[in-house]
Simulated assay, not measured.
Amino acid sequence: MTRVVSYNILAGGYSLREKGAKRTEQLLKIIRSADPDIVGLPEALNPIKFEGLTVVEEMAQALGMQLIEGGQTGSNRDYRTALMTRLPILSVKNHVRPGVLTRPLLEVCVEERSGQQLTIFVIHLAASFNRRWAGNHIRMREVREILNILAPFRAEGKPHILMGDFNTLAPKDDFTASALLKYVMRLDTRRKNIALQDGHPHLDSVVPRRLRFLNPVFRAVGQSDLLCKLFDLAAYFYAPRGPIRLLKEHYIDCFRYLHPHEQGFTCPAAAPAGRIDYVFADPTLIGRLEMCHVMVEGEDGFLGEHASDHLAMAAEFGLLVAPGVPSTPADNAISRT
């Protein structure tokens, strides 16, 4: 079987509020517990240059894996993607689309133990939450381009997986926006007006400029259970979901396929509010899908919230299609609704 993990490790595994302290060991406790063959890292390489090996280089060495770095982003403030694997690498390609993809789409083809070829794509879609629906339009543009890049794989029936941090919700998924709001406000309190691009959200990063006069109101929401419920209800209907709806026209959302009624929240790890990290499989792989779950904890019960602001997503694919595979449940089928 082949085990894959998608894991946003936050700022390349560095704690910038702690003078660049590395979280290598904490992250390894999470990753090792899955015993993965492939690890996709949407936020792997920090644009700030630190001395010595990077966190991902240290992790790759500790895990006995090869490290493939994603392409340059064109901005000195963006984090780059990467992938680690213990499987033989057959090819690597970075799909750079200036002005279309915020970060290049990383493509890595590996050879599974059965001799089959499997191609992994790792992406980190734009956040731009404070740009309201403009942020959603950016992600929609990115997803359309990704679907164009992956079109030949679909046409030729080549097994492939798309995973990473998509910064958006899936249709019908729950969203506890009040938990996210409380989390951001706690970070703002600890931030103390320090201008630090540390990967963590802050209130101005999620509230559009023209609505920032409402920040005192948002702070009041977290102090009232009733206001939290109303805020959650409004946010559920307001939150854009188009990018995932578009992807599900062509791909299987592995977690939702196996867990039609579980929340599966992945972010923020310390106060899970929504699911924005995904493993998508092309339909040729669905008969091989055996497991997909959110990694709340790692080795020795180590909590994921102490390693990153995202929880990792793990999936496992058998090497051969098992006989008598049940048909896709109606709620999880690829649809155009």
Results as ranks from 00 to 15, higher is better:
68 I>D: 10
84 M>N: 03
324 G>I: 01
80 R>V: 09
30 I>N: 03
107 E>C: 05
152 P>A: 09
264 G>V: 12
12 G>N: 12
62 A>E: 11
232 D>E: 07
39 V>Q: 04
14 Y>L: 11
315 A>H: 06
284 T>I: 13
64 G>Q: 02
217 V>M: 08
57 E>C: 04
71 G>C: 14
312 A>T: 12
141 R>Q: 14
16 L>T: 11
11 A>F: 02
43 E>Y: 02
308 S>Q: 11
128 S>G: 06
323 P>L: 12
45 L>M: 14
253 D>Y: 01
249 E>C: 06
282 D>E: 12
261 H>Q: 13
281 A>C: 10
235 A>R: 12
188 D>G: 09
214 L>H: 05
308 S>T: 04
302 F>T: 09
190 R>Q: 15
284 T>Y: 03
244 I>R: 06
318 G>T: 15
97 R>C: 08
318 G>D: 10
53 L>S: 10
327 S>W: 06
216 P>T: 14
30 I>V: 11
162 L>D: 03
79 Y>E: 12
102 T>N: 14
138 I>W: 05
328 T>N: 01
177 A>E: 09
313 M>I: 15
217 V>W: 09
37 D>F: 02
41 L>W: 06
112 E>R: 08
227 L>Q: 11
26 Q>N: 13
74 G>E: 14
49 K>G: 07
17 R>T: 09
312 A>S: 12
72 Q>S: 15
113 R>Q: 10
214 L>F: 12
60 A>M: 11
135 G>R: 13
148 N>D: 04
